[in-house]
Amino acid sequence: MPEEVLTITFIIPSYLRVHARGQSQVEISISATTLAEALAALWLAFPGLRDRVLDEQGQVRQHVNIFVGDDNIRDCGGLAARVSDGCEIMIVPNIAGG
């Protein structure tokens, strides 16, 4: 049985758009069930994003938040969070002080 192809929209923060050809949103069609698989497709399309979102051990950087839909992935399985067709994945830096 062929795997389902999902269409996922990534929301790119302004600081990282230089590594996404200036785009604020990126739509990718992939076969994926987890956030890690979806992000792997994003890194393939835009390699400059990876090291800025993940550290060299593959962990989401401490002050980067990723939301799948309305859910912060830290509350729903981290990189193993489930993704679905039509979902939005938002990458956003923490709010910073002075």
Binding site: Y15, L16, D51, R52, V53, D55, R61, H63, V64, P93, N94, A96
Partner: peptide
């Protein structure tokens, strides 16, 4: 070093 996106 960007506070969120790491050092380069």
């Amino acid at each position: 070093a960007h506070y969120a996106f790491g050092a380069t």
